[in-house]
Amino acid sequence: MITSALLGVQVANGLAVGALYALMAFGLSIIKGLLNVPNFAHGALFLVGAYVAWAVSGGSGSFWLGLLAAAAATALLGMAIERLLVRRLHRGAYLFQLLLLFGTALVMEQTVIAIWGGLGRSMSPPPWLTGAVDLGFSPFPRYLLFIVVAAAVVIAAVWALIERTWIGARIRAGIERPEMAQSLGIDVEALVTAAFALGAGLAGLAGALAAPLTGLSVTMGTDMLAIALVVVVLGGLGSIYGGVLAGLLVGVVQSLAALWVPQASTVVIYAAMILVLAVRPQGLLGER
């Protein structure tokens, strides 16, 4: 029996899951914007973020330190991947860049297993985030609410960074008019590195936020990557914010689909993507 309370809680749940997708898609879009290549290592960065958060918060006892360490470590890792590997390829060598990132992802994933073992891990949220809150129509896990708030704060902060600051103006110029940016004397190379670090850090943070919810498993990165890529394409590749909207939408659609066609909740997204691209090839918010 499907009541309005149940519908409400499914939507709330969908927004929380969607917030994680949005963070992933946001990072992917920023990297895609400057590098013109979807970051196939984004899932592995998500995985690394989750494990770093688990290790650091377990070691230090501080949940916040875990989140911070995850974002910082993956941002550095992203910077290293861009500087040491991706830069060595011509920017036009599309397939080779994808494969390079795929190989890098494999190495990162296996290194995580080599360090922390293949068995799944459990991470507890801090005590003040455990248990449920009453939404008025249903109990709702406090931690899911926290994910929504945390993701909203981070996305707003990055939005402000891109739209309201001097660095952001350059990043936007690099995405929208790379040739003009170059001729204006903007160091596009440094921008690409910065964007890669920013996107990677967002992936790591998403992993850290997901860890107490889904637990840690070595395949979490691959699973997340497939969804995040779909979200970005749905949102529109021309737009860095389309992915945020599409992420929330996909989360809600998946959550509602669980009410009627639970077995198909994964496949619904792929079917939706094919349909959207047939009707609106540039994605939801994309231009061109």
Binding site: L85, L100, F102, G103, A105, L106, Q110, I113
Partner: peptide, 16 residues
């Protein structure tokens, strides 16, 4: 047992 790591390195090597 961690052979996909070697495989990943080979992929990177081939691409570069």
């Amino acid at each position: 047992d961690r052979w996909p790591l070697l495989f990943g390195l080979i992929v990177i090597g081939v691409v570069l």
